[in-house]
């Protein structure tokens, strides 16, 4: 526990130094912390609050305002299901439902053991391949509900 607190102080402290402890750079600071931990640990926000003398509530407000900032850790693999119009009419919703059932988490959720995080996106510009599912940057085109199981197996 103490080791982790010390680690946060060191890592987040370095990020704060980079921005010269400027309170006007909060969003960039939070982005950098997220880059480091892949989410915003509560302790890191507490550390920023204490060090920069910014209310904890203000940091929480920022962290929940921007969609790009997360307060829960993301899994090792990120599954993005495209729900753009083209994918949608070709059954992307069914594909999403199948993945949700397969992983046992709803869209936006992360499986136990931080294996997968499931998210949706509104068009990735690969409409000809629809429905598209992107796993860790790999594009899986012409997705079908029957192909979901095999696709997930590739990554687990």
């Amino acid at each position: 526990m103490h080791a982790e607190a010390g680690q946060i102080a060191k890592k987040v402290g370095a990020i704060l130094d980079k921005y010269q402890h400027d309170k006007g750079m909060l969003v960039s600071i939070l982005q950098d912390i997220q880059e480091e931990y892949n989410y915003l640990p509560r302790e890191s926000l507490e550390y920023v609050s204490k060090t920069l003398d910014v209310p904890f509530s203000q940091l929480y407000s920022i962290a929940t305002f921007f969609k790009a900032l997360r307060l829960t850790p993301r899994g090792r693999h990120l599954i993005n299901v495209c729900l753009g119009t083209a994918c949608h009419v070709r059954g992307a919703v069914k594909v999403l439902e199948t993945i949700e059932r397969e992983l046992g988490v709803k869209s936006g959720g992360t499986t136990d053991g931080l294996e997968f995080t499931l998210e949706t996106v509104n068009c990735v510009g690969a409409c000809a391949l629809g429905p598209v599912v992107i796993v860790d940057g790999d594009y899986h085109g012409q997705m079908k509900t029957e192909k979901v199981k095999d696709m997930i197996k590739q990554y687990s």
Binding site: F56, Q58, Y60, T64, K67
Partner: peptide, 22 residues
């Protein structure tokens, strides 16, 4: 500054950080 508006859009609420005891 114990409370702020949190979240965004239709989810916006008045709350303490993490909805915990402040």
């Amino acid at each position: 500054s114990a409370i702020t508006l949190v979240n965004r859009g239709v989810d916006r609420q008045m709350a303490t950080p993490f909805y915990d005891f402040s």
